[in-house]
């Protein structure tokens, strides 16, 4: 199966720090790909490059095999590539539906639409549909998201991206701040999104979580991909080994 999203030899330097030094990556339709690596391995930087937030210094990005330059996050979004960043970027004073449609507001039909009058009821309806169909527990469509629980807020951010992601969805550590039950729900949601045919990329520190949910696992170390696994063929020990370099004997023999 060919990759929906493929990155080849991506390089990115921040001053003296080589955040990515020829990183490769691929994600497939309908699969959950976990992207793991130690702190500072370059995961977030790679996600930012692949979602159009920062421009890489070098390398190639292919969407459905087509070489693509992502000029901005908006450009990436137009191509069906959505990202849930670690900080969620929700407007805390607005409601769940308002947040889902931020920057993509729906207008009433006819002359009212020409006056840019919002169709709040329709946005609320569509958002609620999304929340229900994705099995989230976001019910109160009128409360500001600041009044929701951490898990519900995460659900709002994920649903917002899911609603528009028809190709690729990046989730940067979506469960880092969540409790056990809320983590469960988010992982279920991640699986459900993949089943719709989206290529889901999950960044996580939690190896058991990764093994539970991922079809494929890509390991990043020092700005490069060092290993690829099938989720069912590997173990926590193997992943940790690849992340830390314990399995990579070339790297271990240093002068």
């Amino acid at each position: 199966m060919s990759a929906v999203l493929e990155a080849r030899d991506i390089t990115k330097r921040y001053g003296h720090v080589q955040a990515l030094s020829g990183a490769c990556f691929e994600a497939h339709k309908g699969e959950v790909t976990a992207l793991i690596g130690d702190n500072g391995a370059g995961k977030s930087t790679l996600v930012k490059v692949l979602s159009g937030v920062i421009a890489p210094d070098g390398g190639e990005i292919l969407l459905d095999g087509e070489p693509t330059r992502l000029d901005s996050p908006q450009h990436a979004k137009r191509l069906g590539v959505e990202t849930v960043f670690q900080d969620l970027a929700l407007a805390p004073d607005l409601g769940p539906a308002d947040n889902v449609f931020v920057g993509r507001e729906l207008f009433k039909p006819g002359w009212r639409g020409r006056l840019r009058i919002l169709d709040k009821a329709e946005m609320r309806r569509q958002a609620l549909d999304a929340f229900v169909s994705m099995g989230t527990d976001v019910k109160d469509m009128h409360a500001p998201v600041a009044a929701l629980s951490g898990g519900q807020r995460q659900s709002v951010a994920i649903c917002r991206s899911v609603m528009w992601a028809d190709r690729v969805l990046f989730l940067d550590e979506p469960t880092a701040a969540l409790g056990v039950r809320q983590t469960r729900n988010v992982l279920k949601l991640v699986r459900r999104v993949a089943e719709r045919g989206v290529a889901v990329i999950l960044i996580s520190h939690n190896m058991t979580e990764v093994l539970e949910v991922a079809d494929r696992i890509e390991v990043l170390r020092l700005g490069q991909r060092v290993a690829q696994y099938r989720g069912k063929d590997t173990s926590v020990e193997e992943l940790v080994g690849a992340m830390t370099g314990a399995l990579d004997f070339h790297e271990e023999v240093r002068p």
Binding site: K77, A89, L90, P92, V102
Partner: peptide
Amino acid sequence: SNIEAARRAGI
């Protein structure tokens, strides 16, 4: 409410 959210949404 969140200027960063506004920026990321392309506003």
